[in-house]
Structures are given as C-alpha cells and as structure tokens.
C-alpha cells in the first residue's frame, strides 16, 4: 500500500504542493481529481521520485521512499505511467514493454514469467500485439497511451500510478481505457489514478481526493464524492 503524509514539493523555489496526505490501501483504486494546474501530476512525480520532495513522508508498504532516486523507487515496486506517455520512440513496442520489466530482467526484482506477462499485455491491449515490431514513436496517441500503461504493468508493480491515461483519446478509446482499469482493479492491483474525466474516475474508484491549488479540498468514498453537490458543481458539471 501507499501512504503519502504531509507531502511538500515543487519546482526549484516554486512550491506547488502543500502538506498533501493521501492513502492508497492495498488492492484499492484511489483517484485524485482537480482542475488544471492543481498539482496532480506534481504529486505523482514526487511519489515516483521524478522530483525530490521537500518535506513529508511517502510510505511504500511501510518503508519511507521520499528522497530516493526514481530508479530505486521503481525497483521497490512502484510503477508510474507518466503524463504525456513518454514512450521510447526509437524502440519497438515489444522493447518498450521489456524495459517496463527491466528490474525483473536484471535480477533486481523477482523475475517471474516475463514472456507470459508480455502475452498478457497483448491480450489486454490487442492493438499492441498487431504492432509489436513497430517503433513506439510511430504509434498513434491512443496506442502510445496503451503502451505506457502496459509498460508500467510489466513491472508487476506493488502500486501503479496512472496520470491521465485517457488524455487525448477518442471517446470510444476512453471507454476502453476505463474498462481496462476496471479489469486491473478486479485483479486487485493497487492504483492511484489521476483523471480529467472526474465522473468516470469516481465511477470506477473506491475512494477519491479532490485537489485545488496544491491543497486537498476534499475526500471521501467515491460514490459519496460523486453525489457531493460541491464536487458536482466544480468538477462534474452541474447538470450531470
């Protein structure tokens, strides 16, 4: 499980996050919603070590990982599908997926059956199977998004961070992505999901946090938040 306590982080002298506390219990799907620039991506970056937190604790299965380098955090079992996909454009789809399993292939995490997981990813995202030899840079935006998710899953993570997996996708693909997230949830994968489609995110999540200007503005079980008038007004559109 993942436990974020009083996290403070930012870029250089600019402080973005103020004392954020988020808890993601094992096997649960927790979502973090909020308007543009609220600090959602910054939160995930601090958790996975892409930026150094300035204060607070980040506990992964009880161990404080705040301040560790991102490769060490990954080796401890944290996978992060980052904002903007960040696939390895000059490598093939298969190579991208294998790199997701890098700690397993280099004896830094239990190896398990990497080939079987590769097949599982191709079952989960059939489009990737068709394009397994294609260079990732030549995939469509939606395909790259699926690749980024699949690549993160190849770690067999303890905790999976997903930053706007539906960004830039056509409505049908957005549905597909959420269907996949539901399947991962059924497999009891611990997930922290950042989403712009707040309604859809609260539909699949167990618990939700609302972020505003680098602070938490609210939290609660997903079905409660979904019906909270203030949340509805601010993030879900009043009518829906």
């Amino acid at each position: 499980m993942l436990e974020i306590k009083n996290l403070v982080a930012g870029y250089g002298k600019v402080r973005v996050l103020n004392e954020i506390s988020i808890s993601v219990p094992a096997g649960q799907l927790v979502t973090l919603i909020g308007s543009n620039g609220a600090g959602k991506t910054t939160t995930l970056r601090a958790v996975s070590g892409m930026i150094k937190p300035e204060g607070g604790e980040i506990l992964l299965n009880g161990r404080n990982i705040a301040g560790l380098a991102s490769h060490d955090i990954t080796r401890l079992g944290m996978a992060h599908s980052p904002e903007g996909r960040k696939v390895f454009s000059t490598l093939s789809v298969t190579d991208n997926l294998l790199l997701g399993a890098y700690p397993r292939l280099t004896k830094m995490r239990p190896k398990g059956d990497v080939d079987a997981d590769l097949e599982r990813m191709f079952d989960l995202f059939p489009r990737l199977r068709e394009r397994r030899e294609q260079l990732a840079g030549t995939l469509s935006g939606g395909e790259q998004q699926m690749l980024a998710m699949a690549r993160a899953l190849m770690l067999q993570p303890e905790v999976l961070l997903l930053d706007e997996p539906s960004m830039g996708l056509a409505p049908r693909l957005v549905e597909e992505v959420f269907a996949t997230i539901k399947r991962l949830k059924a497999e009891k994968i611990t997930m922290l999901l950042v989403e712009q489609f707040a309604a859809a995110a609260l539909e699949v999540a167990d618990y939700g946090y609302v972020m505003e200007n680098g602070r938490l503005a609210g939290q609660g079980p997903a079905d409660k938040l979904k019906n909270d008038p203030a949340v509805r007004a601010a993030y879900l559109g009043t009518g829906s």
Partner: peptide, 24 residues
C-alpha cells in the same frame, strides 16, 4: 541485450528511463 536497450531508453527519454528502474 536488455542493458543495451536501457542505454537506448536513456538516450530517448532520461526521466522515463529512470521510471523503468534504470540507473541513468
């Protein structure tokens, strides 16, 4: 080799390579 791929990944995107567990 997976180590060679890690080198290419680092050339492509150092941040993302770090997220793969690669000590860039």
């Amino acid at each position: 080799s997976i180590y060679g791929k890690a080198v290419v990944a680092t050339s492509n995107d150092r941040d993302a390579a770090g997220l793969m567990g690669i000590n860039t």
